[in-house]
């Protein structure tokens, strides 16, 4: 799982993705089905439920699909199988944490071999707030973080949120950019930065409350 794809595997994978982008996802589907079967036992050791194992695997694949198929992002320079499996595993453990809220008790000893590590709880947790409160807090913080972005990003978000301008062509004119492509690039960069800043600020807020 941790081996990097060979050039041949990488080329095959890229061709499956291209086919999926053109409407034929047969090969890619087959790959994901095989991948699920190979990793199922390990996921099951975390979830104890095949339905959940499948659900979290699907969530990881959906994320991959959004990024690399629909988003047409360049494939990561790492083993695709291992990457998807890693994210699926994260979702499984995240769900365990949600269920247990305060204490992780996994029977997967390899996953939590260092029990001492998890006896030291972090100074914040997303479980300390109810979902609605957390969501509200995120919204507030995101507003604040927009003010910390570059002037261009602030203008972009103002145009989208306050002026209701959504179409790239209109945004291009509104922002005085030379081509529509630059709107996409600006959005991409601003979103990336805002996601990071919002998460970091939310952690500070949760730590303060704790």
């Amino acid at each position: 799982m941790n081996k990097r794809d060979t050039p041949t595997q990488q080329a095959a994978f890229e061709s499956w993705i291209r086919a999926a982008q053109e409407g034929d996802a047969t090969a890619l589907n087959h790959f994901f089905e095989q991948l699920y079967e190979r990793g199922k036992a390990s996921l099951l050791s975390l979830t104890k439920s095949e339905a959940q194992a499948e659900e979290y695997f699907q969530a990881a694949v959906a994320k991959f699909w959004l990024n690399c198929v629909e988003g047409e992002k360049t494939l990561p320079k790492s083993n695709i199988e291992g990457y998807i499996y890693s994210i699926a595993k994260f979702y499984c453990i995240d769900q365990l944490r949600k269920q247990q809220r305060t204490k992780i008790q996994s029977t997967d000893t390899s996953m939590f071999a260092n029990q001492a590590a998890f006896s030291e709880y972090p100074p914040f947790s997303i479980d300390q707030l109810e979902a609605a409160e957390l969501q509200q807090k995120r919204r507030t913080i995101m507003h604040q973080m927009i003010q910390q972005l570059s002037a261009n990003c602030q203008r972009l978000f103002k145009a989208i949120l306050e002026d209701g301008i959504e179409k790239p062509k209109e945004l291009r004119v509104h922002l005085g950019l030379s081509e529509v492509r630059r709107v996409s690039v600006l959005k991409h960069e601003c979103y990336k930065r805002l996601r990071v800043l919002t998460a970091a600020a939310l952690e500070k807020e949760l730590t303060k409350r704790n």
Partner: peptide, 20 residues
């Protein structure tokens, strides 16, 4: 990771501007 993932699902994603 949990905090980012939970936020990310609800806040932002550059896929909004994906070509597809």
């Amino acid at each position: 990771m949990r905090l980012f993932s939970a936020s990310d699902d609800q806040i932002l994603n550059e896929k909004e501007v994906s070509t597809a």
